[in-house]
């Protein structure tokens, strides 16, 4: 059975990628399951989707915990433990990441034993891979790496899954699918189907007796205030608003009030500051700043600068 997991952010087409791949497998005569998985989080938050494909009926269900292939549409997710990108990645798991870095860098960084491949950020024409085509590219890459789905099946799946969109959009997606499929040709078939069940002894599930607990503790109630700040929604952000203090006129009541999440505070000198642990990167502050004193920095670069500067 092929077990393939896509990781991305809400709004990046990860669900579409899983559906394109699922349909492509289906068109190639496989039994298939595909499904997205998202919780309460919204656009920008880490989500994943998965595909199972087999020649025999599939009886497994639910989240894939032992993937044969993991595809990451947004490399910033890898460092986010809550995104669980590396969950179940084993010695045979193939790993594809949409990244400008070398495969060896990723292999070393993550200590990966299986095949590692990157989907270059340059895109098919060297002008950068647009976010809206990453899904189709990842689906096509997965098809080629599995080695049992033809490019024709992928292109047909793109057409089926994007039906209703403008012809030009479909054509561009197919173009990106062809590009990604071609890039993977040297590694074609590196993802092998895994057995239906893991070999060896069956570990016990570790059940416990759940004891009665007083309603004071066992009701779904939180007796502490403002605990939401423990959730670092800054991880949703792909672009970071940075206040350029040289240009800032200190009218914190504009950005501070308009920021939907209330993450802009004021320091003692009356200058606004941004709580990056929780800023979701909506950029309302940037668009509303009367003096255009806020810049947009890609999160990748901002984090890079931070680690270069030795900051946390």
């Amino acid at each position: 059975m092929y077990r393939i997991r896509f990781h991305g952010r809400g709004g990046q087409g990860v669900k579409t990628a899983s559906r394109i791949l699922g349909t492509a497998f289906f068109l190639s005569g496989f039994e298939v399951q595909d499904a997205p998985r998202y919780g309460a989080e919204r656009r920008g938050a880490p989500i994943f989707a998965y595909v199972r494909a087999d020649r025999r009926p599939i009886h497994e269900r639910g989240v894939i915990r032992d993937p044969g292939l993991v595809l990451v549409a947004d490399e910033t997710l890898v460092a986010i433990s809550a995104a669980s990108v590396l969950e179940g990645v084993g010695a045979r798991t193939a790993f594809l990441v949409h990244s400008g870095e070398e495969t060896q860098t990723w292999r070393d960084r993550l200590d990966l034993a299986g095949p590692v491949v990157t989907l270059p950020v340059a895109g098919p024409h060297g002008e950068g891979l647009e976010a809206r085509y990453v899904g189709a590219a990842c689906a096509a890459a997965a098809a080629c790496l599995a080695g049992v789905v033809s490019l024709g099946a992928v292109e047909e799946a793109v057409r089926e899954e994007l039906e209703g969109l403008a012809d030009e959009v479909i054509a561009r997606n197919r173009e990106h699918a062809r590009w990604a499929y071609g890039l993977m040709e040297p590694l074609r078939g590196c993802v092998e189907p895994d057995p239906a069940h893991p070999a060896g002894p069956i570990p016990p599930p570790g059940w416990v007796e759940l004891p009665f607990e007083d309603a004071r503790v066992s009701a779904p109630a939180t007796h502490a205030g403002v605990t939401s700040t423990l959730v670092k929604t800054g991880l949703w952000r792909t672009v970071r608003p940075v206040i350029e203090h040289a240009r800032c006129r200190g009218c914190w009541w504009v950005c501070g009030s308009l920021c939907p999440d209330g993450v802009i505070g004021v320091d003692e000198a009356g200058r606004p500051w941004i709580d990056y642990d929780h800023c979701k990167g909506c950029m309302v502050c940037l668009s509303q700043c009367p003096n255009r004193a806020i810049d947009a920095i890609p999160e990748r670069d901002a984090r890079g600068a931070e680690s270069a500067g030795g900051e946390k």
Binding site: P211, F212, E213, A215, S218, P220, A221, T222, A224, G225
Partner: peptide, 29 residues
């Protein structure tokens, strides 16, 4: 002065199982 968020949502089957089963255990009590 005594914050209380009552009947909040849960994500996932494990906390849900815990809370519902506590209702069962309380009923058995």
């Amino acid at each position: 002065g005594a914050p209380l968020s009552e009947a909040v949502a849960v994500l996932g089957g494990s906390p849900y199982s815990y809370f519902r089963y506590q209702v069962h255990l309380a009923a058995l009590n």
